[in-house]
Design a binder for these strands. Structure first.
Lengths: 106, 106
DNA sequence: TTCAATCGTTCAGAACTAGTGAACTATTGA
DNA sequence: TCAATAGTTCACTAGTTCTGAACGATTGAA
């Protein structure tokens, strides 16, 4: 099989404010981003999952939304996907936005 | 007819981050809020409408979303509804959020 | 090599949400 | 009283989200 599903990541310029806000407007996704920020290193999707009750497919979908909005960068490493928040890109595009939003108490 | 549709406004404590972000995640609503902020005084719904092509019902819906998320306060004045951004409440609940988000170039 | 386990994606259907025209309510002014 | 204006509500359609089931890719062990 020579087809490989590429993980789409928007370029820095293509990150939109509406996209970022919409991605962070979901409490689950906000918690995922928070988890990823708290740990400096990458986290797999299951590690970053906010609570265990969520369906795999739902989780996968949330990570896709975050990825396509430009909030996280995902790379395949073996069997799992490692995720990092695109801090530099986000700060360049929308200075202080991430810090401001994540600054509020959960 | 003695029934009067009350305009629902959440109290300051009931304004949620997810709600605010979701409300501002729509480009149209962001522009409405921007318009309202630029003018110090109240604006009617049609005055604050970002572009003329939008259906009345759609506009009405966007204003309802903004209102129920706690972003704007609406009062009936005669035949029209006057809207103001709830700056004090928003700044108390989520300091700098509004300023940060509205600070980015359109 | 083969087999099972793990991690995540894709698919399809159900439940929910958003945009719109038409009909409606309320206020004002002639 | 009648028409005009400003918004809301309703019903319909179109699109999105959540979920279980099936699938694909990688790894480790027999």
């Amino acid at each position: 099989m020579f087809f490989m599903a590429q993980l789409f990541h928007p370029s820095r310029e293509d990150i939109t404010l509406a996209g970022v806000l919409a991605a962070l407007a979901d409490p689950l996704r906000l918690r995922i981003v928070r988890s990823l920020m708290e740990r400096k290193d990458c986290m797999s999707c299951t590690e970053a999952a906010p609570c265990p009750g969520i369906a795999k497919s739902t989780l996968s979908n949330h990570f896709r939304v975050l990825r396509e909005a430009g909030l996280i960068h995902t790379t395949k490493q073996g069997v799992e996907h490692r995720n990092v928040v695109r801090e530099a890109d986000l700060n360049a595009r929308f200075p202080k936005l991430l810090k401001t939003i994540l600054g509020y108490a959960e």
